[in-house]
Design a protein around this nucleic acid. Structure first.
Lengths: 179, 179
DNA sequence: CGTCTCCATGTGATTGTGTAACATTAGTGG
DNA sequence: CCACTAATGTTACACAATCACATGGAGACG
């Protein structure tokens, strides 16, 4: 696996019969990205014997719809609105399932969650987070090959999970005058 | 600046008249690392016109003493024990000062704070966090040169700050049988 | 010296984030 | 059908972070 692969690029203009909406730092067909994401998840759960229960499915649908990082309590509000339980563990358990199985990621520096842009692919995600518009793009990182990997090998540290996040300004917000 | 530089190595066996204690993934002279850290901070504050007030100094001393990531409320307990205020802003303000001026870092995936292992150096830190013993080693990262930097250039994203953290097992905990 | 201003500290109150514990229900497999 | 396990719902609580406001101290300046 090479290192570079910008998340939002993969969905760009994939089917001409849906209007393109701005998302991340590019545009994409939002309707199909929701249905594709859900279909992917259903397929993977069927294949691996996981249970994509109604709350979990709804939580994933909400993340795919929003297409941005959502706090656990925002998620809880939406789940409650959809008729599910109204206490924090409802949201946290659904999100835990989605994260554990690669359907979503947690953005640590925002304490928020986002649908995975590369479902199915075994990957170590990296995120670019615009501090002005809060959009998030998911890229593929290869931290084990870079400086962190060298440091780990030098000390004998065994990496199990990596958190790679960059805060800054997306192209649109740079143009828009945000400094 | 090259990419690799493991934090805890820099303090290894620096003065033979203090006993070496295990810290991070190596050993070092803990007593001198505390006094050195404080001296560095004092020097830098004097040079830049910053005020290393009693609470701030004590907070840094506590972080240097602990030599691991400390939650804000742990810090608050210790500050209260030292005679300072007992409300959250006391700890948060001291930590904010230390982080803003490079004397400490926040570990996002732990919501905790740790003394900087490379005070003075302008750097983008990366952390290796042992999930078993909770020790933390600070390395120097060069994320702008790796996959993240490529992704940013490809999309036009302007990086202002990076969060790079690796969770896993340190050498000692691998040997100790923790899986 | 007095005082003005800025910055830092102390405190109360509140919001946001995340878990522990336990009862109940719904699938799954014998 | 029964037993077992996983998932859900709820209560309660712990930890994380911020707002708003009052107080006090150090320097600048007349």
């Amino acid at each position: 696996m090479t290192s570079l692969e910008v998340g939002t690029d993969t969905g760009t203009e994939r089917s001409p019969d849906h209007p393109a909406e701005p998302v991340g730092f590019g545009t994409h067909d939002h309707a199909s990205c929701i249905s594709d994401g859900l279909a992917q998840a259903e397929a993977q759960c069927a294949a691996e014997g996981l249970r994509l229960t109604p709350v979990r499915r709804k939580a994933l649908e909400i993340l795919l719809q929003e297409h941005r990082a959502l706090g656990a309590y925002d998620m809880l509000d939406r789940l409650r609105g959809a008729g599910f339980g109204s206490q924090p563990p409802v949201a946290y358990r659904a999100l835990e399932f989605l994260v554990a199985n690669g359907f979503a990621h947690k953005i640590e520096c925002l304490n928020a969650f986002i649908a995975c842009a590369h479902p199915g692919a075994r990957h170590t995600p990296a995120f670019m987070i615009c501090r002005a518009c809060e959009s998030v793009a998911e890229a593929q990182a290869a931290p084990a090959r870079g400086s962190l990997g060298k440091a780990a090998r030098a000390t004998g540290f065994r990496i199990e999970r990596t958190v790679v996040e960059a805060e800054g300004l997306c192209p649109a917000c740079q143009d828009g005058g945000a400094q």
